[in-house]
Design a protein around this nucleic acid. Sequence first.
DNA 1: AACGGTATAGGGGTTTTCCCCTATTTGGGT
DNA 2: ACCCAAATAGGGGAAAACCCCTATACCGTT
Lengths: 203, 203
Amino acid sequence: MHSDPVVFVIDDDQQVREAIQLLMESIGLKVASFASAQEYLDQFNTQDHGCLILDVRMASMSGLELQARLAAEESHPPIVIITGHGDVQMAVKAIQAGAVDFLEKPFNDQALLDSVHHAIEKDLSQRGEALKLADIRTRLKRLTPREREVLDLVIAGQRNKVIAIDLGVSQSTIEAHRAKVMEKMEAATLSDLMRMMLILELR
Amino acid sequence: MHSDPVVFVIDDDQQVREAIQLLMESIGLKVASFASAQEYLDQFNTQDHGCLILDVRMASMSGLELQARLAAEESHPPIVIITGHGDVQMAVKAIQAGAVDFLEKPFNDQALLDSVHHAIEKDLSQRGEALKLADIRTRLKRLTPREREVLDLVIAGQRNKVIAIDLGVSQSTIEAHRAKVMEKMEAATLSDLMRMMLILELR
DNA sequence: AACGGTATAGGGGTTTTCCCCTATTTGGGT
DNA sequence: ACCCAAATAGGGGAAAACCCCTATACCGTT
């Protein structure tokens, strides 16, 4: 079911990659190294999880560019930025864009480990969240347009009678739709249904 | 009802305070200046809103310290950090701690204005949120412990019969509590009630 | 001692939901 | 031509919720 988290190291300096690899392996973390952002993107898939350690200064695509690209995806592992020549502005932008941390080389080993731990924790929780949401969305997709319409009105607290009038059909039709909705959404009670829908609304 | 947003400038350099004041007033924003964090704290009240422009290096209490103090409060205006001698680490910490922006002196006037605008927007939305939450919490406080207990079980989707058995009382007692809950929470439908409770849970 | 709020319990009635059926029409796919 | 999913509609009954009323007991305040 669950694979181990992987630390994806993306840095065009082989020395750095190897050093980080050793450091991570010393605490039992798996590592996958890439010499360029493109190399990483080529094998990127949504199953991967863990975190990214990303160098800013790289040929062709910078770490910050990769960060922006990944931000456009539905979901990606948390990012730790490392850089040899960082400035305040760059660091601010990176963190504002959601990076977990921004470290200057040469970094303290423990600081990087701490950031990676933090990133992996964040990955776990955000993946848990994403899974729940995806699950609910999958069920929602099973609804017909009409059922979806009824669902929305149910969630809004309308009684069947009112929904029937609203949609210009009989009450028994609404009852039928409503039963279908509960079945397809795998909701035992109205409370379950509302919880699912509000999670989508509020997150 | 609504007062204008105020830019609270906290910097021990009078020149800087005056420069920022002029800049802010040039676009019609109100300003309140303070020469120390303590001065600001002394007059701090939760009605204030707008944003803070905070210098890092100050005698006795630094901007970052003040940021930490305010973070302990239930709610405070968004913070823009400015500094003459910032480093990457400091910037990262400040943004991670929730600062809207971190600017180095001498800053570009437009950059500061942009940050302040962003901060004020954030203030508006976070105050709106906080108001909604406070409103719900106020109503919740009106419930007796027993009513609160019933509410929780209702939200969990339990039927009155089950709640009655759970609490070892009769069904009609539950009905009475339930009616009281709806009245005190000002909820017309179960849907309203669930929405309020889930907003508290999920935010 | 009287009062108000809380928790309890019940009667009696209406409305709504929920669940089990059947049944027709329409439109798409085999 | 046949079948299936979707949308429609209805009957009938059980369960639950909702509403209005009364009533008792306890507890703390005035």
